[in-house]
Design a protein around this nucleic acid. Structure first.
Lengths: 405, 405
DNA sequence: TCCTATTTGACTTTTCAACGGACAATATGG
DNA sequence: CCATATTGTCCGTTGAAAAGTCAAATAGGA
């Protein structure tokens, strides 16, 4: 039940059916490969002839290819179809406050070259030229991975609606910074930029899986230096009017709570960020202190290790975080009613310690009867959700549904 | 950038372009009537011939009609087209805890028969037969308004995803109650049921206006006995996985706050509902007291009148509510990044007293730089947003975009 | 080994709707 | 009266799905 905007619509032309069915076929091939033309026709409930035309068009364009012949119990053997991921790649970049990570993937998001990283340079100009050089070298060193289709970049901050400027990235000190144009100029490749929490959600949305899980509304909550949240509704990222929707990190947990970096009091982020957990461990607010030297301090990973080895103070700090995490998730669940919540970030390493607390405090705040059935899925750091999201920025557009009506 | 669900898609057929363009044309006629075929063709950027076919089809079906001939500076005069709202109507029903309101509208939501009301019977069976009788009598008394296309019902509670059962309506004491089938059986008319906050949002989405305002993401917050919220994203209501999304009334303002009817502590609703405001006025929590007799108590409208006449205690109570309202709106804005917030409910009568406080506390919690630009629009009770939303339940489906891909 | 049934993928004809252009009807201004 | 402009209709063309046909490939049974 969508309203058509009388000031912004897309009329259908003669080839609109083809555009639509082409994308459906492509997505089915992606989800169920290997698959034959006949199977495709059965799945789509159209004639084999119509499918053949679409498939041959896709083959001609090099988007899919005809692989080995398959087996059937009887009759002519089918020719299997696959999404063509050979000799093309995407560069995924994850910009974080201290280090920047780079990975090369194929066009369905599978890693091709291991993750490399380097310290994040705060000066934007220097950063751009450094990053461009690294990417050029990486692609030159691995000619076997083929042509690069584009660069996907993920940042811990807000991106404007055109995806070309960083509006505000507090932990990087970047403010209204054009990033797309300089990088595109420096690399000669198409670039997409996205907020990291949202990108994590994108990664999950486009994750190649068994294919028997249907698209459901979900939320990705990334607990890290900040709190990144991505919301997916009906197969689409929630963006809002200025492309800053989903900033659940700055909804209130307690309006009288501790001051948050955003200026407000008692934001969820101020309770559950890594800094908040560490602050509880140390018994003082680290946010007030001038830029602690990373090496001199214990990190969240150290804290989790301490907790695992039995340190009571570390355990208590994590339990508090777990409680606040669950309470905040309750607000998220009541707001968007998702089928599933993905949780990422360093804290997932302590999931065995905090799961019970998170779940029980989530239940405390969610409405009966349906809200409490929400599934929680932990995404370990080893899954590289941010980098996979960055890769999805490059690969997903060619699988997206056409815009109609 | 929507992902196509490989398990739930709609392939395009030969007549998909027609279905799409038909709905676009219909929406354009609705938004810009009176309009000629030639104008329509220009707006849609298609041939006049194609438009003529669609228009004649719509006329044949009785959905639009050809009215008076228009004026042009030169050349053949155009025949104007209008959405045909003659001799058909929708019945809008607003079920509230104490009274139930009924209105009859035409199919673009304009009132035809004034609002009538009767006390809400708590026993569902009695209620259904009473309501059905009232509707039958109403339609019989006003034969001039033509045939009834359906009944739209709005309830202060959660509705299941099929729209047939009330999952939970705390203030009515209804719990997992089938309402659609009995009412349809008793009236012989199609029935749609929706949550009242969401229906208010629907009303605004389908409000017939100048037509030069484009569809933007927005939120409707209805402050009343409870707190109803409807969220519209890209011309569509946010529903979530179990049709209970948008329950922002139960996000936290303070996790240590007062107990809410939902069982959690410090929900936004517990701070800004009419009962909360009245409780502050009386200096004690009215929620704990056994069902106060309405007549014996002062109502929120009385309280607002007192405030307007200078009563300091009443003003203070409203100011507190205003502050909490603004703070909660901050969370909503950060979560969904809307272009506009509509505010409805009894409290809008005190808007002159609370506006400054609401706006400043909203600003306190919203993220820079874009979040603070959100527009706030007050919807007075005299606009009947709930009833118009109920009417939209009946009339909107025929204008909705077809589902494709 | 031959025949039948089955399955795949290519191909042909039909139908639907947009596309592109032509045309009659209607009006204005010189 | 004529040139020009505008609206709405009509007709042939074209793109794509719908429906059906056919050859190729293969398995299994007689």
């Amino acid at each position: 039940m969508r309203r058509i905007d009388p000031n912004n619509f897309r009329v259908a032309t003669r080839d609109t059916p083809r555009q639509i069915n082409r994308q459906i076929a492509l997505n089915l091939i992606r989800a169920r490969q290997p698959i034959s033309r006949a199977d495709l026709a059965r799945s789509m409930n159209v004639r084999r002839g119509a499918v053949s035309l679409i498939v041959n068009e896709l083959i001609e364009e090099g988007i899919i290819f005809e692989g080995a012949t398959g087996e059937t119990s009887r009759g002519r053997k089918p020719k299997f179809l696959f999404v063509d991921t050979r000799l093309r790649c995407a560069v995924a970049v994850d910009i974080r406050p201290t280090r920047t990570y780079v990975m090369v993937t194929d066009l369905v998001g599978r890693p091709l070259v291991g993750v490399t990283s380097f310290p994040t340079e705060r000066d934007p100009k220097v950063f751009v030229s450094e990053l461009a050089a690294k990417i050029r070298r990486l692609l030159a060193d691995h000619e076997e991975i083929g042509e690069c289709a584009g660069i996907g970049i993920v940042v811990p901050g807000m991106v404007d609606r055109t995806g070309s400027r960083i509006l505000f990235a507090p932990r990087l000190g970047w403010h209204d910074l054009p990033l797309l144009e300089p990088l595109q100029a420096a690399t000669g490749l198409p670039v997409s930029i996205e907020n990291s929490g949202r990108a994590c959600a994108l990664a999950k949305m486009w994750a190649t899986r068994g294919g028997d899980d249907t698209t459901a509304d979900f939320v990705f909550v990334s607990v890290s230096d900040g709190l990144g949240v991505g919301v997916v509704v009906k197969g689409e990222l929630l963006r809002g009017q200025h492309n800053v929707a989903g900033e659940f990190g700055h909804i209130a947990l307690s309006i009288e709570g501790p001051r948050c970096a955003c200026g407000a009091n008692g934001c969820w982020e101020a309770y559950v960020s890594n800094l908040a957990t560490l602050s509880r461990y140390f018994g003082r607010n680290l946010a007030d202190e001038p830029l602690p030297l990373e090496s001199a301090m214990i990190t969240i990973d150290d804290l989790i290790a301490l907790a695992h080895s039995g340190d009571a103070k570390a355990r208590a700090a994590l339990q508090s975080t777990a409680r606040y995490l669950g309470l905040g998730l309750g607000s998220v669940v009541n707001a968007v009613d998702p089928a599933r919540i993905y949780i990422g970030g360093e804290i997932t390493a302590a999931w065995d310690l905090i799961e019970v607390t998170v779940r029980s405090s989530l239940k405390e705040r969610t409405l009966r009867p349906v809200g409490r059935r929400v599934e929680i899925v932990v995404v370990p750091a080893s899954d590289y959700p941010r980098l996979k999201g960055a890769a999805a920025l490059v690969s997903a557009p060619s699988f997206a549904a056409p815009v109609v009506a």
